[in-house]
Write a protein that binds this DNA or RNA. Structure first.
Lengths: 235, 235
DNA sequence: CGTAGGGTTGAGGTTAATCAAGTATGGTGG
DNA sequence: CCACCATACTTGATTAACCTCAACCCTACG
């Protein structure tokens, strides 16, 4: 994928749109734009395999990516769903052998920006600002994972589901209050894996909450009927 | 806590002993030694509280520290046990408001080395090498947490216990094979919290494995009788 | 129509938490 | 040295959560 002056300029503009690189100086952005590679990934396609050597890390420009681990018995647990505008697999590039700790698939037709490991490292060593951004990004992952562990080990499926709905509501700028409708952003099967459970249990849990008049389910649209009651379940 | 030339020199030597700072140049080490502060923490004492503002991060020079989260209903889940020679709470210092994502207590009489957030940031900005070390350390945390999430969500208590025993054996340079005895490095109650369960269940699980002649338990000494059988449980 | 995929429902079994009551174990003071 | 106590640990009975397997429904789509 050769990058003409034109496309480098264009890439530079794209990169500047990512929170991770916002307000980054010109030399840094240009350097990054030069080594960045665009990648089209159709829905369902695999991007990284756990245990394989990571060749670099990614930004999601368009679409969505799931990052997951598979248990020995084949069950998959989704660690994160990476939205457009965010990055993933940063951690891989800092390991000695660059072994991926998780797998990744596109769950929508996606456009990614790829940074090759070696050349990105060069850029990092050249710019302390970039290194600090990277540190901030990694710290964010650490926090997220800590929440994840806590959520998994300390909650029931019911609790995790409610907590997910709260996050979902906040993400779409809607408050988590009575009458508000949130739309699931993933298939229910994917959501189940995200919550560390299976579709059957998710279905039953939604039904139970519906029977208690805490919410109403219509396909992927969930209407909050009793936000107080729902939030009480997190206790 | 004033640092005379003598103690700075001594601190520099101590810091050089940490994997994180090994082979770091002289200017970096001296800078770090100047801002580092030693702290004695008796067993059981709290070090960090989840949600509080983090003032910096820590190295464990002697003793051991548990990093944990508490659920709304008061149950505690241990994320990590930090051994002497390792660091914790690095991630905290990169958050805007410096909010701790987890709590930490000493589980033994411990000696810590504390780096104040602001001054450490200065050192970081000054040295790209230090920043790269920090990135490596954070990446390590990300991987560990990913394993943690996978382990929690994909395994039974039995599986998590076996997996812990394997780690324990490897850590003490002993292979995980028949006849080998590993010694639990923490109280069983702490181990239970580490495995995301409660002492009762841990006790029963050990008994079950003992009844199946897979291992033998004597206090905190666990002898592997059938390593194949145990490893098969991870499938 | 007929089929496929996502989703739901039901019966049954397993795992592990809770509550309650025991049994070591390791120090401490007499 | 021993009785005593606190703490860690174990055991039992009960209950709740949730996974498995199997069947079924529904909607989109050729």
């Amino acid at each position: 994928m050769p990058s003409s002056k034109q496309s480098t300029k264009e890439m530079e503009k794209s990169l500047a749109g990512f929170a991770m690189f916002r307000d980054l100086g010109n030399p840094e952005l240009t350097g990054l734009a030069t080594i960045a590679v665009r990648q089209e990934v159709p829905k369902g396609q695999n991007i990284l395999v756990e245990g394989d050597e990571a060749q670099g890390f990614y930004l999601v420009e368009r679409g969505r990516v799931k990052v997951y681990k598979v248990s020995p018995d084949g069950k998959e647990h989704i660690l994160h769903i990476i939205e457009a505008g965010f990055s993933f697999a940063e951690a891989c590039i800092f390991f000695e052998q660059g072994i991926c700790p998780a797998s990744a698939d596109a769950i929508e037709d996606s456009q990614l920006i790829f940074f090759p490991r070696g050349r990105f490292m060069e850029e990092l060593k050249r710019s302390i600002t970039l290194a600090m951004r990277m540190l901030g990004s990694m710290a964010g992952w650490v926090r997220l994972m800590a929440e994840e562990v806590a959520g998994l080990s300390l909650s029931t499926v019911e609790g995790r589901l409610v907590s997910y709905l709260v996050v979902l509501a906040n993400r779409s700028q809607t408050p988590f209050s009575d009458g508000v409708t949130v739309t699931l952003d993933v298939e229910k099967g994917v959501l189940a894996a995200r919550l560390g459970t299976i579709p059957e249990t998710l279905s039953r849990t939604l039904k139970k909450l519906q029977d208690k008049d805490l919410l109403k389910v219509d396909r992927s649209h969930i209407t909050i009927l009793d936000s107080r009651g729902l939030l009480d379940m997190l206790q």
